[in-house]
Amino acid sequence: MHGVHQLFNGVKKIMSNVIQVLFNSLRLGSIVALATLGIVLIFRTSRATNFAQGTIGTFNAFIAAYFSIRVGLSVWTSMLIALVTAFIMGVVIDKLFIRPAAKANPVSKQILTLGIILILVGIMNSSIGFLNTVFPSVTVRPQPFFTTEMQILGARVGHNTLFIFGLTIFLMAVIFFVIQKTRWGLATRATASNEPIARLMGVPTKTITMFSWAIAAMLAAIAGISLAPGPGIDVNLLLGVQISAFFAAVFGGFSTFFGPVVAAYLLGFAISLGAFVFSTMGGSAVFAEILVYTLVLVILYFKPFGLFGKPPVRKV
């Protein structure tokens, strides 16, 4: 009887640990999911691999932090302001850089986004008075949305984590609904599947592409603002997220919108769990990442277009 009780307690402890890891990975998973959705949106509508997603997010996270810390507005108002600037930024980037290069090959477009990264990083690193107050060179740590915690199934979960997760799921639901059910979504899907033909059929592909950039920039801004309270904002805030988002996009499959999102959570959870297991066994947490990514590579060898992706149809 005693043994059974002990076993039960042990299982319960392991379970609560796993649940704790699950909740811990939710926040980062959500942030990666937001970033990856933006990347997929842009890739599908303008055939560009957006390396600047992370930098755009960091830029707007700085703006949100400026308004909440320096100006003294509430976290919510400053987030709204950052979303507006992100929207404008997406439109400007599309108008100035992406649209004129519509005929460039995909690799040139990748490098174009590198150019955007360099310009934004240059602005953020600038030491001119006004820019230096908005983008200080010291790390700033804004307030999280919530600071309270609650207890779920024996695991401690911050309200902030739950809010970010809820927000992500809500945004995903809205975006999926719009893409699947509305005229606007139909136009987006048409642009994604074949841009020239869609244009010939009267779809305003330029507007679609522009709004995709704007929405992607807003998603990046939310990702940046959500991540900022943890490590604090510096220029490389979303660098790791950016790379994880790429991995999630490929693992889930670029050709669907939900695959990358699922993959983002899956990868986040697998790496957190692996890190937990390795650190309890006395190893280094870095090995978890190595192991998970190697496994993903092996899976990709057998499913080269991702878990949910379909191979593109190719005609001779």
């Binding site: 360099l118 310009i119 240059g122 602005i123 690193n125 600038s126 030491s127």
Partner: peptide, 8 residues
Amino acid sequence: GFDDILTG
């Protein structure tokens, strides 16, 4: 201080 921007 503008070298990054100019390279971009």
